[in-house]
């Protein structure tokens, strides 16, 4: 939204660094919390956006990430071993941002995603799990980073994603479920990676996201009338950006980061957003 200066750079960097877990060699969600792959990716993303990657002990973080890959190819979130395609995406994304993808066993990693693919074209959290928009996004984005979108049945997945739109204009995460603003990000980013954003009604999703705004205090909620939070605000804005909403910066749907930054790093993939409107 072009207001990076709203947060003090030094404070942001100091906070991120205070989340470092020296025992594990990675970041926790908060100072004194244990290292986890999810917060480690967030830390890397923030440091890159603040142009402060020199503060990072790259070899240790890479060791931490690689140590989490399991025999099956999936990643666990931490040393206790909860596995999930979300963590696989965190690993692929982080290694790519750090320029360390050559250290990853790509075949093994892609092999696990392939086993999570369902007949409806989508992906779940682990082998056997039902397709879910969030896991569809993490698997699609991971495959995009690894240049392996050929693993996806584009027409079937595009169909499944397009059917996430409900008469209200909002998107749901699975068949016959309620709409929620956070799915805007997951569904729209996936469609954008498949170059099929035109398969839903952009105007109606835009109107739905805007209707979940709190006009008095700012922020976006999960659906109209509910309490806004940072999580749904981020995902709502991300969705609006891909839909070409005026005045927003371009979002890279693969990395969920500013598109200009990813392009400068030479990591841009072949996704397509809707053209930015001027009014």
């Amino acid at each position: 939204m072009n207001h990076k200066e709203a947060l003090d750079r030094e404070e942001v960097i100091d906070f991120v660094m205070s989340c470092w877990d020296e025992d594990a060699g990675a970041f926790g969600a908060h100072p004194d919390h244990d290292a986890h792959i999810h917060s480690t990716l967030s830390a890397i993303q923030i440091l890159i956006m603040q142009d402060a990657l020199d503060r990072l002990d790259v070899p240790r973080v890479v060791d931490f990430i690689l140590s989490l890959q399991q025999e099956s190819g999936v990643f666990s979130g931490d040393s206790f071993g909860e596995i999930d395609t979300r963590f696989l995406y965190c690993a692929v994304n982080a290694l790519s941002l750090l320029g360390q993808l050559d250290k990853l066993d790509v075949e093994k990693t892609v092999g696990y995603i392939r086993k999570c693919r369902n007949f409806d074209g989508g992906f779940g959290a682990c082998i056997g799990a039902e397709s879910h928009a969030a896991m569809v996004w993490v698997c699609t984005a991971a495959l995009a980073i690894l240049d392996r979108l050929d693993e996806i049945d584009h027409e079937t997945l595009g169909w499944w994603l397009a059917e996430r739109q409900l008469p209200s204009g909002g998107l749901n995460g699975r068949p016959e479920k309620l709409e929620d603003v956070c799915y805007s990000h997951w569904v729209l980013s996936s469609l954008s990676i498949l170059n099929k954003l035109t398969w839903i009604d952009a105007e109606k999703v835009t109107a739905f996201i805007l209707s979940a705004q709190d006009l008095e205090h700012g922020g976006i909620a999960d659906r109209p009338g509910d309490q806004p939070d940072v999580f749904h605000t981020q995902f709502g804005v991300a969705g609006l950006s891909l839909l070409g909403y005026p005045g927003l910066n371009d979002l890279d749907p693969v990395y969920c980061m500013p598109a200009s930054l990813i392009e400068r790093m030479g990591l841009k993939k072949g996704w397509q957003a809707l053209p930015r409107r001027t009014n």
């Binding site: 169909w159 059917e163 739109q165 204009g169 035109t198 398969w199 839903i200 009604d201 109606k204």
Partner: peptide, 10 residues
């Protein structure tokens, strides 16, 4: 099913 119009055209 007009929201998905473009898909049917494709």
């Amino acid at each position: 099913d007009s929201p998905r119009r473009q898909r049917y055209i494709d």
